[in-house]
Amino acid sequence: MNPRVIRAVAIAMFKEFWRTPEALFWTYGFPILMMIGLGLAFQPRVPPPVPIAVVIGEAGAPFVELLQNTKELEVLQLDAAAADRALVRGRVGLLVRGTKAAPDLRLDPVRVESQIAQLHIERALHRAAAGGPIAVATAIEDRPGARYIDFLVPGLIGLNLMGACMWGIGFNLVMMRTQNLLRRLFVTPIRRGDFLIGYIVGRGVLVVPEAFVLAAIGMIFWDVPFRGSVLAMLAVVIVSGLAFTGLGLLCASRATTYEGIAGLMQTCQLPMWMLGGALFSNESFTGLMRWAADLVPLTHITNALRDVMLEPGGFAEVGWTLLGLGGFAVVCFTLALRLFRWH
């Protein structure tokens, strides 16, 4: 080891970094802003009640009353089909049937919120029995389409669309800009729109089949169902890909450093990872969190994917989502086209 060399390299690298304000902001400024934002959002407070579904006509009135009087639980009284759907989509942690004396719970124990709901119900029953014995029948939800893995696979497809389209499009474009290739193209008669369309088609062509490959893996290895329209799924994947591509292009339209594009991507993607309902359900979010979750495209994409995979959804079910995402893509592309810089 040569300390003189190490020192010289360290100083050179530090100065280069220090003199790049864009890099400095995304490395220091952005995490600080994020910490302040998340710190304010997640102040210590009483946790919200855990939503559970009581199947109308299959749970006794005294039992429902007991559950409704348990402040840790939010009781939704639903018919059997709606209750199943609420469980599948993660809206509720478990389904309740039976009576106070012989309760019957249905849940997927892989979900933490299901276990919490089960514990709260058992505690309520203990209190009601004044410490006496209770007998709770618990059934593990293992029907294809109602398990956590069924919820997860469409979410992963949504996340993959987001990552592949945003990083694949945005990061590579900034690399072409830093290597002068965009500048070289600029001095040719190529039109901005022609270049961007060609670029997007070339980079994005593999994203569509990849979504179906992921769905097929889920179907083959874990019996994840595919109950809806394949064409509707294709439309959801293409339009979602365009929406994320537009967002990636917008992020990359002016960035000139890797730190800059990485920071912009993180700013866009972090809220989607947290609120987009890909890995865990955002159905029970309320207030500001609900508003924010509805704002991010990933929420609508994962919902649409679950509509066409886990339920017999078609264009009627995902039509509005397709329109909304299409509009979002148009806005992003228009802005990106206006802001785009070759060099």
Binding site: Q179, N180, L181, R183, R184, V187, T188, P189, R191
Partner: peptide, 16 residues
């Protein structure tokens, strides 16, 4: 567009 169709440019450095 017309000018660019009529000129050829070799920049100081381009990484293809």
């Amino acid at each position: 567009q017309e000018i660019r169709e009529r000129i050829g440019v070799c920049l100081q450095e381009t990484k293809f």
